[in-house]
Amino acid sequence: MHRLKELDVLRGLASLNVVLYHYTSRYREIFQHQYPIKYDWYYGHVGLELFFMISGFVIFMTLQKVNSVKEFAYKRSMRLYPAYWICICITLVIASIWDVARTQDLTFFQILMNFTMIQGVFEIPNIDGAYWSLIPELFFYTLMGLFYYLGVLKNIRIIAFVWVSWMLLNRQGILPFGEYFLNLKYGMFLLSGIFFYKIKYNKGNYIDHLIVISCLFTAILVNQMPGNIYAYTFIFSLFYLFIYGKLKVFNLSPLLFLGYISYPLYLLHQNIGYSLIKSFKVYIPNDFVVILLTLSIMFFLAWIVKKYLEKPIITYLNSKFLLQFKSHQAPEASPVMQN
């Protein structure tokens, strides 16, 4: 199955959405800076929800082609950790020579814990504020790996019913536990990605569509913020357009480039970007120019990380370890798209 470029486009748009939010509305909140109102962007959080939907789609897809939990864990680790460790090191180096926001006050132990990616579980500050969203991803990978190991993914509809019910009950305070590990705040986006995959490739029936719609309503009920009813309806509609092949018109080079650099861009953009904005504003009075210049530098840095650091490392590691899984591939296992 060929690579779906539309997924890269969606990743790029999600990443850009988060970055613009941090450089406008969020920057205003943290530093009390008065941007012109036309530069504000309040819906940056929707980029994360879109990321989670993409993850649900890709993780369920990956589980269709792996032959063991070990292989699944390896592939997901390669997706998360090399770029993460590289970006931590870059942020720390820049922090050592520049006043990077909220980074220099971390202790050595806190820095070491950040390399695990689970620092938030122990309420240890993140080196970069954007890292918080990696824990829901990591817990989702763990949960899906467990389901795969137990052989219960064939009952994913039952799992969906229980999971969505738990989210709603938790929101009402009836089941006030499990929110962190079970992703009760964002799990409906991950779950919808799974059923979007089933609709696209497994000829999902009306039940799968009903589960997707229930995920939408659950998202609106659990995450009650002004405008979410419109924002969430938009990204669910966007994903429907994707699975029915209506987004191919957006397979444009600039958007595909954004998708290519989306992960390192997300990992690097916040604190380094804030420091760039603060520095540029001393010399450049135009806020639009400041944001555009900061974006350009972060795009370039993310591209360097992706092409010249992350990609060679993953290629080397795959040449050493991935063939071990390929050599044990079951005859009936069929590959799906590269992720």
Score class of each variant (00 low, 15 high):
Phe288Glu: 07
Lys278Ser: 11
Leu252Ile: 13
Leu247Trp: 01
Gly245Leu: 09
Gln270Gly: 04
Phe288Asp: 03
Leu247His: 00
Leu276Ser: 02
Lys281Cys: 04
Ser262Cys: 04
Asn271Tyr: 11
Leu258Arg: 09
Ile243Arg: 04
Val282Trp: 14
Asp287Val: 06
Ser296Cys: 09
Asn271His: 15
Ile272Leu: 15
Ser262Pro: 01
Tyr274Met: 15
Phe257Trp: 12
Leu268Pro: 07
Lys248Thr: 01
Pro285Gly: 01
Pro264Phe: 14
Ile284His: 02
Val290Gln: 12
Ile291Leu: 15
Phe242Lys: 02
Gln270Asn: 10
Ile272Ser: 09
Ile291His: 10
Phe280Cys: 03
Gly245Gln: 05
Leu252Arg: 15
Leu276Met: 14
Pro285Val: 03
Ile272Lys: 10
Leu293Tyr: 09
Lys278Met: 13
Ile243Gln: 01
Phe250Pro: 02
Leu258Gln: 08
Leu295Val: 03
Leu276Arg: 02
Asn251Ile: 08
Lys278Val: 05
Phe280Ser: 03
Ile291Asp: 07
Pro264Ser: 13
Leu256Glu: 07
Phe242Val: 00
Gly245Arg: 05
Phe257Ala: 09
Gly245Val: 05
Leu255Tyr: 03
Gly273Ile: 04
Ile284Met: 07
Ser296Lys: 04
Thr294Met: 09
Gly273Glu: 05
Tyr283Lys: 09
Tyr260Pro: 01
Leu255Phe: 13
Val249Met: 09
Leu258Cys: 15
Ser275Trp: 06
Pro254Thr: 15
Leu255Pro: 04
Pro285Asn: 06
Leu265Asp: 14
Val282Cys: 14
Ile291Ser: 10
Ile284Glu: 02
Ile277Asp: 04
Gly245Phe: 07
Tyr260Ser: 05
Leu267Ser: 01
Ile243Leu: 04
Tyr244Met: 02
Val290His: 08
Tyr260Phe: 09
His269Met: 10
Lys281Ser: 12
Gly259Met: 10
Leu268Gly: 08
Pro254Met: 13
Lys246Ile: 00
Ile291Glu: 08
Ile243Asn: 00
Leu256Gly: 08
Ser296His: 03
Leu247Phe: 04
Ser279Pro: 01
Tyr263Val: 13
Leu293His: 05
Leu265Thr: 14
Ile243Met: 05
Val282Met: 15
Ser253Met: 09
Phe288Thr: 12
Tyr260Ala: 03
Leu295Thr: 01
Tyr266Val: 15
Asn271Leu: 10
Leu268Asn: 08
Ile272Thr: 12
Tyr260Leu: 12
Pro254Lys: 10
Leu276Gln: 02
Lys246Arg: 05
Tyr266Gly: 13
Leu267Arg: 01
